[in-house]
Structures are given as structure tokens and as C-alpha cells.
Computed example of a mutant assay.
Amino acid sequence: MDATINGEPRVTATDSALNLIAEIQADHPDILFHQSGGCCDGSSPMCYPKGDFMLADHDVKLGEIGGVPVYISGSQFEAWKHTQLIIDVVPGRGGMFSLDNGREKRFLTRSRLFGGSEACAIPAIR
């Protein structure tokens, strides 16, 4: 799976998200993100220490933000494969097990549809 569509990354981050990633990495240097789409996470990507989250065979690596890998469940990828995910930060509390919890700000996934020639370049997933 390509991490870009016509040169556009499948996942990107705002400056606020990159700043929060750096803040978290001061305490937990080796982290990853997972966007599952479960009923409790909603649009919040979960941030975990790498050794604390077991990736499944069907998880898809979208790319990296700030040097941190971002994964999505295979079923969510199938639904969102035409969409660029933009990791942002908003005020609030992070997910119960996410490393942004307790920092009074949390990660939030925004999105935009790939359009025009980008959409035509999206390969079929097997």
C-alpha cells in the first residue's frame, strides 16, 4: 500500500499535533498511532507506547507523522481509502488508554477526500 496518492500523504498532522507528539515523546520516546473506528474511540486516534499495542494482521500502515507510524484497521481503511487523514489537536481529554489523556488536549482526526487525479490514482485493495 502506498503511503501517498499522487504525492499527497495518506496521513498528515497539524503543527499542534506535531507539538503534542513531541511533548508525549519526552515521556514515551517510542510511540505509534492507531485509528480503529470502534464505538468508543470515534474520531480520536489512539496514541500508545509501541510495545503496549499489538497490531493485527489486517491493520494497515497509512504512513508517519513526526516520525511516528500511523495505523488503521483494515475495515476502516476500506471505508476511508479515498480520504486523507489529518491528525489535529483540540481541547479535552484523550482516550482512556491513549497517551494524550490527562494533558487537557487530545488528538482528533479530520479528513479530506482525495479528488481529481488523486482519486483516480487510488489502487484497488486486495
Rank of each mutant, 00 (worst) to 15 (best):
K81W: 00
R126H: 14
G37W: 05
K50N: 14
P49E: 10
I31M: 15
G92H: 09
A56E: 14
I72Q: 11
S44D: 05
S73W: 14
F53I: 02
E23R: 11
A121E: 08
G51N: 11
S36V: 15
Q25D: 03
R10Y: 08
G63S: 06
T109L: 10
E8D: 07
S36W: 15
E78L: 13
S117R: 13
H34N: 13
C120T: 10
V70K: 00
C47E: 00
K105Q: 14
R112W: 15
G7D: 05
R106P: 02
H58C: 07
L32H: 01
I87E: 01
A121S: 10
G92C: 07
D27Q: 12
D27P: 09
Q76F: 12
R93M: 04
Q76C: 09
L18V: 03
S43F: 13
A56L: 15
R106W: 06
I122M: 10
P29S: 09
C39T: 11
A124C: 12
L62Y: 00
D27G: 11
T4M: 14
F107W: 07
G51C: 02
P49C: 06
M96Q: 09
G74N: 08
C40S: 07
D15G: 03
H28W: 08
A56F: 09
A3V: 12
D57C: 05
W80V: 04
G63D: 04
D41M: 09
R126F: 14
L62M: 07
L20D: 00
V90A: 09
G7N: 09
S98H: 01
E104N: 15
N101S: 13
H28M: 10
A22L: 10
T109D: 05
D88N: 11
G42Q: 13
R10K: 08
E118M: 14
L113G: 13
I125R: 12
H82Y: 14
D100T: 04
G63T: 06
D41W: 08
M1E: 04
V11R: 15
A17V: 03
Q76R: 14
G7P: 14
C47P: 02
M54D: 02
D100N: 02
E64N: 06
R10W: 04
V90L: 10
G66S: 06
V11N: 12
L62F: 09
P9C: 06
A121K: 08
S111L: 15
R112G: 08
T14R: 00
S16T: 05
S117P: 08
A3D: 15
S36P: 11
D59W: 10
K50A: 10
Q35P: 00
V11D: 06
D15F: 04
R126L: 14
M54W: 01
E23N: 06
P45L: 12
A124F: 12
F33R: 01
G102P: 02
P91L: 13
Y71S: 01
K81H: 01
Q35A: 13
D15H: 03
E118V: 08
E23S: 07
W80F: 12
D41Y: 04
G74I: 11
T14D: 01
I65W: 13
K61Q: 02
F33S: 02
F53H: 07
K81G: 02
P9E: 14
G66T: 03
G92W: 06
E118T: 05
I125T: 05
E118D: 15
